[in-house]
């Protein structure tokens, strides 16, 4: 069981959380401009890295708020969390955030 540091509540058991997959996947600004291949990318294609992954979690059994985390998909270690918000400058998980940071 992972210990996940909710940015609002502090560290809690994984069983209190639900997973939301890859973070920072935005709805297309102009859906009509997308062809089928682009729609497929938006709907079905997600990053699947072996290593650091920027992903969303929701603290379902706690504050019920969504947040972003950067977690290592091999060691399962949560490197950083931040309240939900726009993609940080730079964009790569390794340099994205710290638990003190955020955009609140």
């Amino acid at each position: 069981m992972m210990l996940i540091p909710c940015p609002h509540c502090g560290p809690r058991n994984e069983t209190e959380f639900a997973y939301g997959g890859q973070a920072h996947v935005s709805h297309p600004e102009d859906p009509h401009a997308l062809d089928d291949a682009a729609w497929a990318r938006y709907l079905f294609y997600r990053e699947n890295p072996k290593g650091l992954f920027a992903e969303r979690w929701v603290h379902s059994a706690g504050c019920r708020r969504w947040f972003n985390a950067v977690r290592n998909t091999v060691t399962y270690e949560v490197q950083s969390v931040e309240p939900i918000g726009p993609r940080p400058p730079g964009g790569r998980p390794a340099e994205s955030t710290t638990s003190e940071g955020g955009h609140a």
Partner: peptide
Amino acid sequence: DQYVGYGQRGGFH
């Protein structure tokens, strides 16, 4: 397990 993972292990819960 609900998350993406390559550790060949999961949660005991």
